[in-house]
């Protein structure tokens, strides 16, 4: 598998500069008292949490506890759902992303998203990646576009596998490759944050391991938030873990602490597979 060892150093694309030591103390996103309602029915209650840069934050909790709903707040994807209403403040670099001045389309290029089921566009592998940079006007010519496509595919660990078949449809790839294609597509628009909603749940263990390896690589450059229903996956890939239950944030802490000595009984019961 190719890794970022081959990637070029481009500060504009990588956001390099801040050192690792700083990364854990600097919240990239700060959520305060976030509530979400679907047609008046509340799904997320008063959630406040920091999301740290250059690290992976895992959201865990039983089905229906509001993980995806909360994740969607971070790039205002709930705006696209009829009847959904979000209150509270979400600061990214000091700016409240819920403010009416913020353009959600621009925001979504800064906060990329990868979904449970790989969803490549019905286009070539090349165009899947090129689409975002084109519509966001990130490139001036074909050469530049080629470079972004290659860089993104390399960074997603897919370049070696697809470099000779870039014109083939994205849907011709295996499930795991499609998911890495979607990650490459998210990376191509130079996001700062990558949201992943159960990105491995339709993949086999080997494809899952490749994605986890990729996440571990990506966290050196990005702020990543991942929803997963596999506690082992949360334990493996994240540095911070937040446990949600019935729409509430029950506990958040260092992943090590959450999985060896959770403070809250509900966390303990959930992660050890007990009745609540």
């Amino acid at each position: 598998m190719d890794t970022t060892a081959q990637t070029d150093h481009d500060p504009a694309l990588t956001g390099e500069g801040a050192d690792q030591a700083q990364a854990l103390v600097y919240p990239r996103i700060n959520c305060q008292d976030v509530n979400v309602f679907y047609s008046g029915k509340q799904a997320v209650f008063d959630v406040s949490l920091p999301v740290f840069d250059r690290s992976v934050t895992a959201l865990i909790g039983p089905s229906g506890c509001g993980k995806s709903t909360f994740l969607r707040c971070l790039n205002r994807m709930n705006d696209t759902i009829d009847g959904a209403k979000v209150t509270g403040d979400i600061f990214m670099d000091g700016e409240n992303i819920n403010s009416p001045d913020v353009d959600p389309v621009l925001l979504r290029s800064r906060v990329g998203m990868v979904f449970q089921k790989p969803n490549p566009f019905p286009k070539s592998i090349y165009d899947n990646i090129a689409y975002g940079p084109r519509i966001h006007g990130l490139v001036d010519d074909r050469q530049e576009l080629d470079a972004i496509v290659e860089k993104s595919l390399r960074r997603a660990g897919l370049w070696q596998e697809v470099k000779d078949r870039l014109t083939q449809p994205g849907t011709s790839l295996s499930g795991g490759q499609q998911q890495r294609l979607c990650i490459a597509r998210a990376i191509a628009v130079r996001p700062e944050v990558i949201l992943m909603d159960e990105p491995c749940s339709s993949l086999d263990p080997i494809a899952t391991a490749r994605i986890e390896e990729l996440i571990d690589e990506l966290r050196k450059r990005y702020c990543i938030v991942i929803v997963t229903h596999s506690m082992q996956q949360a334990a493996r890939v994240s540095q911070r873990t937040a446990f949600f239950h019935l729409g509430h944030l029950v506990e958040m802490g260092d992943t090590d602490q959450i999985f060896t000595s959770p403070r809250e009984r509900r966390t303990e019961d959930y992660i050890t597979g007990r009745f609540g």
Binding site: Q232, T260, P262, T267, I271, T272
Partner: peptide, 9 residues
């Protein structure tokens, strides 16, 4: 079983 939390301890 990959024990966690109190089970792990």
């Amino acid at each position: 079983r990959q024990p966690m939390a109190h089970d792990l301890r």
